[in-house]
Design a protein around this nucleic acid. Sequence first.
DNA 1: AACGCGGCTGTGAACGCTAACAATCGTTCT
DNA 2: AGAACGATTGTTAGCGTTCACAGCCGCGTT
Lengths: 341, 341
Amino acid sequence: MDQPSPPRPAVMIDVARLAGVSHQTVSRVLNGHPSVRSETRERVLTAVRQLNYRPNALARGLAGRRSRVLGVVSFDTILYGPAATLLGVERAARAAGYGVSIVTLEQLDHDGVGDALSALAEQSVAGVVIIAPFTNTAAALRSLPTGIPAVVVEAGTSGALPAISVDQVAGARLAVQHLLTLGHATVWHVRGPQNWREARDRESAWRSTLEEAGATVPPAIDGDWSARSGYEAGLRLAGDPRVTAVFCANDQQALGLLRAFHERGVRVPDDVSVVGFDDIPEAEFMSPPLTTIRQDFDEVGRRCLGMLLDLLDAPPDLLGEAYPRVAPALVARASTGPARS
Amino acid sequence: MDQPSPPRPAVMIDVARLAGVSHQTVSRVLNGHPSVRSETRERVLTAVRQLNYRPNALARGLAGRRSRVLGVVSFDTILYGPAATLLGVERAARAAGYGVSIVTLEQLDHDGVGDALSALAEQSVAGVVIIAPFTNTAAALRSLPTGIPAVVVEAGTSGALPAISVDQVAGARLAVQHLLTLGHATVWHVRGPQNWREARDRESAWRSTLEEAGATVPPAIDGDWSARSGYEAGLRLAGDPRVTAVFCANDQQALGLLRAFHERGVRVPDDVSVVGFDDIPEAEFMSPPLTTIRQDFDEVGRRCLGMLLDLLDAPPDLLGEAYPRVAPALVARASTGPARS
DNA sequence: AACGCGGCTGTGAACGCTAACAATCGTTCT
DNA sequence: AGAACGATTGTTAGCGTTCACAGCCGCGTT
């Protein structure tokens, strides 16, 4: 006689027996196969509920082709953008009935990405989302013949890979034009790390926007996304009377910059205007509240997943440029103002 | 005749054939079984390399008992602590040869946790780490007879569940005592959301530390971890001459508070000292740099994983309180100073 | 000289599910 | 009326591993 709550969780055959059908019929019901008499379907569903049956995803993946798990390759640092994107992807995946397995990389190099992908392939993920917007990611991926459908996030115009990204060029242009419109003769730039695609895109858009406006292009200051690097940049910029407007490649750097300016008695926005990038939740509460470029990471995650799902059943790679960039937006706050007269 | 790069990835039997052994011997080599002649082992490993064989985790999980995947239940907001902990767990898991599947919850309630756990159970994870330090998480978990080994992060002294946490009480005490030592008559508190275990722990430690010191205990101000809530608290506190020291339940709230004080002309630390909690990377670059309590989330993640792995082969729950709390540390910066004389 | 034992390897059967095909039945078409 | 058809269900065979149980070998024992 069976115990009411057996140690072993119910499997499909248990459900089948209880419902008086074959295990295949149970499978059909579970997978929404059309040709099952509705009375039978009900009987099966009742049995499922009664036994608290949950299909085993491992067996499912092994038997059929597709697993209902997606892989996400992210990396090892807590940066707002990637973290927010990951969340967006996960949420969208869950909504679509997929699980999410993550791998973070410490190495940004070829092997790192390769290993991550292998680890995911081992788990038979149906597809992967790669949130690793380094300039060399695309190259690394191209040389990996894993055959898993993949979507790259934020990789910009890298080429042959399906990618979703925020329009970095438009964002940087928004920032620079905002400052120029306020009457600043030129705009300085604290850029992000050079191995990041986005950093390069922002920098080059900054440069070309200035050039188009006929403004002189000051040298870019190096940064690495961290507040500390922004702080150091701020210390260098603080003494220079030519500096009236600074565009930071992200909000953390802007925070550090603000700190340095504050220390050195540079008033923002009276002496210098500052614009950031990302619109992290804290931006509104910096001193002063930071004007910045908002990126909708949630939307990125969502589109990214949509694209991956399309990729899963649409075999060809004809999807090329069908997916438009996500548009960034300027959020004007108190850190920017008219140029000193 | 086989193509050199077949569309179908190699499976164990392919390796076996190439090495001239049985599939079982291949399995033995892969799992480090002792009784394989070293010459045979070499032969198999060579074949593995040659075919670029990777064992199928799905089949492995199905056939054997254990899958090499752990689940992490997190939730839907980008908060520094949980994000950092997740990263720590993932890193530790990867080091131990485990994959990580994540599920985020939007609902904090019983069903939310239950669904998350079911989703993970479906994937046959070997164990789960739950990063959801709500006060009701413990209750929700106890009522779930899923039978999966689980470790809860940051759940404090909740009781019957294996848990790893930073010593919130010690942390809050550190903060309050730091301020009292500086000569402040009492310390105000902007607390976190009441459904968070940690928020309650910090609040009650704040209260008891004040009481022990014979200081009056002002009413706690509500917050929800966000900078905005800190800002609002700051606006309320700014007018009050009795307020000379504020302990914020996290750094974001402290940021908002600083912003509000700045707006209202309250000088920090001259008029009011402020202490935060977490030591987010930005804390050092706030205006002024924030004195705060550092939590080592990476260590939390690591211990958490260690505990889970112990739990996996050590069946009994005799591990109870064997795992000590992670000690927090005071990081003194410029936002605190002596009381006004 | 036969026995037994330990190191090494192979065989068959799960694991829980889906895919492909076969079987059954009541209809509908010619 | 006989056959073919569509809807519904069952049967059999894997998916790629590990597990349990044999085999085989050569050596030291009795």
